Amino acid sequence: MQAIFWTVEEVAQRARQFYENGIRQEVEHGDNIGMMIVIDAETGEYGIDKSGVESGLMLKQKNPNARLFTMRIGYDVAFSFGASMERIVE
């Protein structure tokens, strides 16, 4: 299989399109909220687990050249970095 060269933004855009155009309806419910979803931006195949690591490894095992995008189900962001407001105010 020929390698596809995409920017980080292209990978994110394609994965989000897969998510919005079908995956969301399948996964955003009950116990999946807060879990991590890893999406192959080329195929739309995905996996869900607590950290995203197992799903990422599974998808890479199927396709070593996979362009993967990870996000938290039911949230706009997967991770947050920085100080809390309480620490800034103190």
Rank of each mutant, 00 (worst) to 15 (best):
G74H: 01
T43C: 12
Y46F: 13
E10C: 12
R24L: 15
I33L: 09
M1K: 10
M36W: 06
V89G: 04
A41C: 04
Y46K: 08
M85F: 07
Q2D: 14
D40A: 00
V11T: 15
T70E: 13
V8E: 14
E90Y: 07
F5H: 04
F79V: 10
L57W: 04
E90G: 10
G47F: 00
D31R: 09
V89I: 11
Q61C: 08
Y19A: 06
F69Q: 15
S80N: 11
Y75A: 08
T43R: 10
S51R: 07
M35H: 04
M36E: 11
R67L: 09
G30R: 02
P64R: 06
V53F: 15
W6V: 07
Y75D: 13
A78Q: 12
M85G: 05
A83V: 13
T70H: 09
V77L: 11
N32K: 08
K62N: 11
N32T: 11
Y75M: 13
M35I: 03
I37K: 00
T7E: 09
G34F: 10
Y19P: 13
S51Y: 08
N65T: 05
P64N: 13
V27T: 01
Q2R: 12
I23M: 08
G30L: 04
F81N: 08
V11P: 00
T43H: 12
N65S: 05
G82Y: 14
E42P: 01
G74C: 02
